[in-house]
Design a protein around this nucleic acid. Structure first.
Lengths: 243, 243
DNA sequence: TCAAAAGTGTTCATACTACACCCATGT
DNA sequence: ACATGGGTGTAGTATGAACACTTTTGA
């Protein structure tokens, strides 16, 4: 029995996909206690002039992660960041991007990023808009991007509680209050009180006091701490909660 | 300025992808305290006769999730299951499945499933092999499927600790020991002691005693419990740990 | 010397761990 | 009656939440 009896039209029945990558890029403006997400204004025909997440179609010879990094570098200049894949949405129903006319299927692989706010410079390309939106004030987004954003927001909160992503976006040396503000801004003011947060995070044992003090206006100078990656690695397999 | 100046070869520079879905299908054989994963033997040219995860290419007019369910239904007959998306791997480097000859990119969207063991019937299609493998005895798999399996295994353990997936694969009425065996088999014997597990899970308040007793040979008959979805929904937003 | 910010400690309640022990059934 | 598995209770420790208090600086 020939193989073809199994696959009547072997090359036709499988869909060709165009694959998009969409990034949920967060940043924390600790000075104003705001959690920000990066939005861009759409130039394409569909949803013209609506805010959306920065995204792109994946190119030839480009990996998904490379595409995600490309989106970042095309919209923002930043040195320190955390990036991970979020979820893959299919959008059979939608006709997005630059290729509405053909009938290919689209997949949107979303990535979630957290970047250091102080050093982040937005790149305005002169055509579209780009802006940091406080999470509370995000408008209705194009396509199903609201879903992706919500998904990313949940992931951000979980990541913060269970893994040391905060240290990827804090400066090399930071005060415990810097760390606290970051957590408080993302998780909400009622997640823990400062004293208890201090005690808990110090007990974990991977923050080392550099001895250097940071004086910021009035008040007692704060110790600058450093994230000790080696000490953390020893504990990383244990179930750990930060907050 | 025409739009084309922005996209020199608008339809050429973006990759066309073939998209595969691969499932990590777990089941718990509580009678023998084994965590099982479903493997199939490859028929394709690449990695011929090596064990791999059940997978397929996504068809026209089929969603990712539909493809994942199709894989399930082609390999196993089962009524009760839990399914969720796991991760999307790109495999630029690989030439898998039925289309090695063309140069399209491949994406593998993996799904993770947990099925009820007692009712699961494997479907042998007469050509390839199919088998439940205890997680400890899984051989080297084709492609990068070991990575996917490891990823799925981690997700399974996390899901069990933080969400009520167990009740999707337990019978309608079950004893607390059934529940305990399920957890112990997946998480390892040292995760909690039976008395404490009982106390903890009952205190959560979403298991209701049906009053019916189950007598299984010697020993005191056990109460049959039922998962109360309504009671659970009231608590679902709170951070909750099961173990 | 006072306000502001950093940092420490104490109390009370709750939760976790490791058991010991009692209960109901089949043989 | 006793082995077998189901089920309850408790003592000691650890953890968490709330908040009072001390320390060190700038003005």
């Amino acid at each position: 029995m020939p193989d073809s009896s199994f696959k009547p039209t072997p090359k036709q029945q499988f869909a060709q996909f165009k694959v998009g990558v969409d990034n949920v890029i967060f940043s924390v403006d600790t000075a104003f206690n705001r959690l920000l997400v990066l939005l861009v204004m759409r130039q394409g025909e569909a949803y013209l002039n609506q805010w959306s997440l920065p995204g792109t179609l994946v190119r030839q010879s480009e990996s998904l992660e490379q595409a995600a990094y490309r989106i970042l570098s095309e919209n923002i200049r930043v040195q320190n960041l955390y990036l991970e894949q979020l979820y893959t949405f299919d959008r059979l129903e939608q006709a997005p991007m630059e290729a509405e006319e053909d009938s290919a299927h689209y997949l949107s692989v979303s990535y979630f990023a957290l970047v250091r706010f102080d050093e982040a410079e937005l790149i305005a390309n002169g055509v579209s808009g780009i802006a940091w939106y406080p999470i509370q004030y995000v408008p209705k987004l194009a396509f199903d991007r609201d879903r992706i954003l919500q998904y990313g927001y949940r992931r951000l909160r979980n990541k913060l509680e269970y893994s040391p992503v905060a240290f990827d976006v804090l400066p090399e040396r930071f005060t415990l209050n810097d760390l606290y503000q970051l957590y408080a801004t993302v998780l909400g003011e009622n997640f823990s009180d400062y004293s208890n947060f201090r005690a808990k995070v110090l007990k974990l044992g991977f923050l080392s006091d550099t001895g250097v003090k940071a004086s910021r206006g009035a008040g007692r100078p704060a110790s600058l701490y450093r994230f000790d990656a080696e000490a953390f690695d020893l504990l990383k397999d244990k179930p750990m909660v930060f907050i």
